[in-house]
Amino acid sequence: MIRAIEKEISQDRRAFIKKVLGGTIAGSLLLVIPAGAVDLTGIPEQIPGMRGDTAPFITKKKFAFIVDITRCIGCGSCCVADKNEYKVPDGMYRTWVERYVIDDEDNVYVDSPNGGLDGYQEPREDIPHPTRDTFFVPKLCNMCEHPSCVQVCPVGATYQTEDGFVLVDSKRCVACGYCVQACPYSVRFINPETKTADKCTWCYHRVRKGLLPACVNVCPVQARKFGDLNDKDSEVYNILHQPHVVSVLKPGMGNKPALHYVGLRREVV
């Protein structure tokens, strides 16, 4: 009996020493490698004036996202970048690209196999009539000024920051799914890994570091644009303040999206 207790104590001692050693080594490493502070000096600032702003909220900026439908080629690069950035589970989509085909009888055919993740390599050949028009429509969070998801969240886990981002606090979310039902744009899903609501954040973590959202960064044809509407030199300001065909999705919902579309057709929902 006593021997057994002694054995237990000596085992405990060994475990204790191991932990102390481990802690010491880890602690020393932390002194050498600055934790969390990624060195960005080599990466140019993509959103002017962001790195000087260290306040909790970026109140002096008004962000907007613009998708130019006339430019999108449906390559799916944005979807790949997004999936890699967030490890989005298969079958769930923070962003996706839709393919619209309109025939000469005015029938509208839409598809988005695997959310456009694989790109649209082949044309649709199952359309019975001659094709009149085709285009691609990338979709993502609309970052509404009056977001339905924030309104309905029973615990305030989905919230709107002062700088206009609609985000989800995964430590508060109960995953009731009410926001999923309430979003008119179906950009939300319940992440099966975290068991919380999830959606596109316009890469808030990148924006705070002066970097463009991952999808904007990789778009080879600049169909996705992101910037500050208070900066009169920004591309988004110029697009929204010049005579362009610009609209938002489902304006009748009254959500006032901050996501705008250039060249939006009436067929797009």
């Binding site: 969240c153 029973p154 508060r172 979310c173 319940i190």
Partner: peptide
């Protein structure tokens, strides 16, 4: 149904007043 039933009481302790569910 809830993904996090252990947080269910948040609906009553710290509710969001604009939520129809709260």
């Amino acid at each position: 149904h809830l993904g996090h039933p252990e947080r269910a009481m948040s609906m009553m302790l710290t509710p969001n007043p604009t939520s129809a569910m709260a």
